[in-house]
Design a protein around this nucleic acid. Structure first.
Lengths: 249, 249
DNA sequence: GTATAGTAAGTGTGATCACACTTGTGGGTG
DNA sequence: CACCCACAAGTGTGATCACACTTACTATAC
């Protein structure tokens, strides 16, 4: 079952739809980036150049370039004797490191955002919130996580600070693969929604302090849930799936 | 003159000394990374794959991979119809964006560092400070900037937070190419040394608040000097040098 | 002098290849 | 059963090539 879920995750990636004016490498990059942030790729998962190239129906060259960019972003790390690129497995210390950076940067971004957020931005944030709520009720993890990212990123984007946003995206590249594991913690989803509700209310009220507190609380709760999954050994560290299997030719 | 100075900057890069167990691409990456942080590369400078490959005496493949990593780090950006990678030219808004992120992250890193900094770490920080002081007296810009980065990075490294450190390095990749321009502002070097002296004293005194204030002041002053160079049109945005010249075959 | 067209040189991109090394599997031996 | 070895398959790495497109330069015409 675990294997087939992941198979479906990879099936969603390809083949690549080429776009006029876009390089293959940038399209590969965006696909994999999205897969990382949304949690479709799991910690420890190894990303084989040839397998990705095969799935996306491109040569290995654009895959190499895309993966190297993701390495630079922090989303992938070099692993093992083969130097295969894999989704990083984070230690407890690294989780805390990321948590504290996120508190600093996302808290700051939220405060800057609220100074200038417009009604059209609020509408799409409300939409993301609504979809998240429905997904939480339905136990639809993928939709929940997609809109969790959407909710957060729409808020921070309203700060109109592109470099800050890219730093935050880099952090989410690192923790995105872990978020699937947090839903195994029974209270996490509900707690998370409580913080999201508070954040949304703070946005409506134009209250920067309340917004920052809600964001910081959400980050703390997520980190705590992630720590629990580390303790319970439930981080869903996956066996390499993207590496071709020897006997499946 | 400007051309020959830059020629010397590039001469320092190559040829690549291959190391047992290290890939060519990682060595290229480190060289270029260092060149960015230390200010040897200037905003707007375009980095031609073939020219770098020629200087470093490798094929274009490892250069491509290294440059793509640097793109992911934020040190280089895609530019123009050819999609050549170049050192980003920062707008005033981007400078302020980076300044604020730096204040958040480097301020936080400094506070964490002071909690656990040891005497051997202090010794090398003192050494960097001393070399910076001598270089400031002698007007030796390169040595000053090398040790400026060294001073700062040694402090933050004492926080023992690898991911935070990589975020900070990414920011320095972005501003490093600009620091040469700040020495054109008459008071900047002296002001910077005042803040460094205060930071060092705070480290000696184990005073986190004073350390954070000194770091934050230094960042503000650097950003202010950079803004002045933008206003004066002195950002030293360079013509492409690394692109092969048409008539120099 | 300016504008245009043509050409050469330069740019990155993607494809393919060969190689060195690693990883995985199966068989044999103690 | 555990260990070792041989071999096959897989891994990334670096090299090279051809191509499409861009940029720069030169010559010509007005």
């Amino acid at each position: 079952m675990s294997e087939s879920i992941q198979g479906n995750g990879w099936a969603r990636l390809g083949p690549l739809l080429l776009q006029e004016g876009a390089t293959a490498q940038s399209l590969v990059y965006e696909k994999l980036r999205h897969a990382l942030i949304s949690g479709h790729l799991r910690p420890g998962e190894e990303i084989s150049l040839r397998k990705v190239a095969s799935i996306l129906n491109v040569s290995v060259t654009p895959v190499r370039e895309a993966l190297r960019r993701l390495e630079g972003d922090g989303g992938l790390e070099v692993f093992g004797g083969n130097r295969v690129l894999r989704v990083p497995i984070l230690t407890d210390a690294e989780l805390m490191d990321i948590r504290d950076i996120r508190i600093n940067l996302e808290g700051f971004a939220a405060v800057q955002a609220i100074k200038q957020i417009g009604s059209s931005q609020m509408r799409v944030i409300e939409n993301a919130y609504g979809l998240m709520e429905i997904a939480a009720e339905n136990g639809d993890v993928d939709t929940y996580l997609e809109n969790n990212w959407r909710f957060h990123s729409l808020i921070y984007r309203a700060a109109d600070r592109p470099i800050l946003m890219s730093q935050i995206e880099g952090l989410w590249l690192r923790v995105g693969p872990l978020f699937h594991a947090t839903v195994a913690v029974p209270t996490h989803l509900n707690q998370s929604m409580v913080s999201h509700t508070a954040a949304l209310q703070a946005l409506r009220d134009r209250d920067p302090v309340a917004l920052q507190e809600a964001i910081v609380r959400d980050i703390h709760e997520a980190a705590s849930a992630l720590q629990q999954t580390l303790i319970n050994g439930e981080t869903e560290v996956e066996r390499p799936v993207l590496r071709s299997k020897r006997n499946n030719k």
